[in-house]
Computed example of a mutant assay.
Amino acid sequence: MNRKIGLVTAGILLALSGAALGQSPGFAQGGEEVKPIFEHALPNVEGKRMVAVLVTYAPGGKSHAHHHAPSAFIYAHVLSGAVRSQVGDEPAKVYKAGEGFYEEPGSHHRVSENASDQEPASLLAVFVVDAKDNPLTTPDPK
């Protein structure tokens, strides 16, 4: 996809689909920014939709431990920098730009953070989820 067209599309979809995540874009206290960039019903899988979000971490930024919607299968692809992730009881692992990981429905995302204190990092997370399953992300109680 042409980068310029992709950025315009991302901006339009951000305006249309922010409510799907149950959170607004912008850097949170942990140093992350989440921007919805795509949402569409899957025409060949009744009751399912695909949602893509861009997660950007400031240097040293992180997400709070969280769960996703119970039906969500997620593939995350690191676009820039390096991201440390721990899903369930698996050991934490650092993924560099060009690498990816997935989360099964019902997984607990214990660690999701920038592996660098000096450079930003970003990833694209693609959800396949039940059409009415919201919010997509719920932070763990503190």
Rank of each mutant, 00 (worst) to 15 (best):
H109Q: 05
A76E: 04
D133F: 04
L79G: 03
K93F: 03
V55I: 15
A52Y: 01
N134D: 09
S107W: 04
F73S: 11
F101L: 00
S116H: 13
G106H: 08
V83C: 02
A58Q: 15
E119Q: 15
S116P: 09
A82T: 01
P59A: 13
H67M: 12
K142N: 07
K62P: 00
G60K: 09
V126Q: 08
V55C: 08
G88M: 06
A72Q: 04
A115I: 03
N134L: 13
A65D: 03
E99R: 03
A115Q: 03
E113Y: 01
S112P: 00
A115N: 04
E103D: 06
V83Y: 02
V126K: 04
E90K: 15
F127S: 04
P105F: 10
G98T: 06
V53R: 06
D133S: 12
V87M: 09
P70N: 09
H109C: 04
V53C: 07
V129C: 05
S71H: 01
Q118N: 03
F73R: 12
S116F: 12
P135G: 09
E104I: 08
G61W: 07
T56M: 09
L54A: 02
P91R: 14
S85P: 00
G81T: 14
A131G: 04
Y57R: 00
M50S: 11
Q86W: 04
L54T: 01
K142I: 10
K132L: 08
F127N: 06
V78Q: 11
H66G: 11
A58D: 07
H64A: 14
V83F: 02
A52L: 05
Y95R: 11
V111N: 08
K132S: 11
V87G: 06
S122K: 07
D140A: 14
E103S: 10
D140R: 13
P91M: 13
V111W: 06
A72P: 01
D117K: 14
V128M: 14
S85I: 14
G98N: 06
A131H: 07
M50T: 08
E103N: 07
A52R: 05
L124T: 00
D140P: 07
P139E: 15
S122W: 04
R84A: 15
H109M: 04
E99A: 12
P141I: 02
P70I: 10
T56K: 14
V83G: 02
E103M: 07
T138S: 12
P70T: 11
K62H: 10
Q86G: 05
S85E: 13
K93I: 08
K132H: 09
T137Y: 01
K142F: 09
A115E: 02
Y75T: 05
P70D: 13
G100P: 03
D140H: 10
V87I: 15
P135V: 11
N134A: 12
